[in-house]
Design a binder for these strands. Sequence first.
DNA 1: TCTTGACCTTCCAGTTGCTGGAACCCCTAT
DNA 2: ATAGGGGTTCCAGCAACTGGAAGGTCAAGA
Lengths: 130, 130
Amino acid sequence: MNIGDVSKKAGLPPKTIRYYEDIGLITPLRDPNGYRSFRDSDMHKLAFLGRARTLGFTIEDCRTLLALWDDQDRASADVRDIAKQHLAQIERKISDLQDIRDTLSHLVRECAGDGRPDCPILKSLETFPE
Amino acid sequence: MNIGDVSKKAGLPPKTIRYYEDIGLITPLRDPNGYRSFRDSDMHKLAFLGRARTLGFTIEDCRTLLALWDDQDRASADVRDIAKQHLAQIERKISDLQDIRDTLSHLVRECAGDGRPDCPILKSLETFPE
DNA sequence: TCTTGACCTTCCAGTTGCTGGAACCCCTAT
DNA sequence: ATAGGGGTTCCAGCAACTGGAAGGTCAAGA
């Protein structure tokens, strides 16, 4: 399979796939003409990567997960640890964003949003909290 | 005021403040020795920037907001629009993260997390959803 | 057979918002 | 005189790609 087909199947842009090769996440074969030739196992890895990335794992997480995936003797606890750490990060991010949303929606509600120059949003941005 | 004092007051690292000057968000004066000399208005802008950035506005948003801030004739609707757009983005991000969290916490719950190699997390990462 | 167009290749640069480090100047106190 | 704690510039790098240029390859149609 050429990169175009793989790209469609995996839902990743060709550029991204080449980048993943650059940083050593996959190592597709090469045809005599220089084109990359993807095996099923490469396709598998790319699907794995695509999914892990949409779940927000970093590339380094992915590298570790791929290694564990390849390792028949891995302990599921290793994978679970990575996933749990990642989960904790996500929880933190969500609550940060919720705080921001609350502040901001409060400001938007307070703002008349008309032609008058008086704007509570800008006013509140002038000062740091606490 | 020198950069160190401003840094403390605004809660921004000196590097960040220099960077903000580089990209034209502020234009402090210079002392004869070459040191930056910050006026109250610079300090104000930096506080504004710090607050807007903690609220997750992009630098380009900040640039626009600063311009509106400087403009006595601005319409509060302009500011409100930016804030509302930003709010919508945040809402989207939150719900994306919540989806991810749900998927991931489901996976973590399913995973035995012991020494056995069988791991539902890796298994589920193999395939794309839908 | 030639050409067109869609592929593919590499490499270099840019994105966002800083951050680290090197090499150097300045000012005050001892 | 020197030690320290400021300050300055510039260059490089982070994550995870993305865009573009310049060129090689291949299958199909006139």
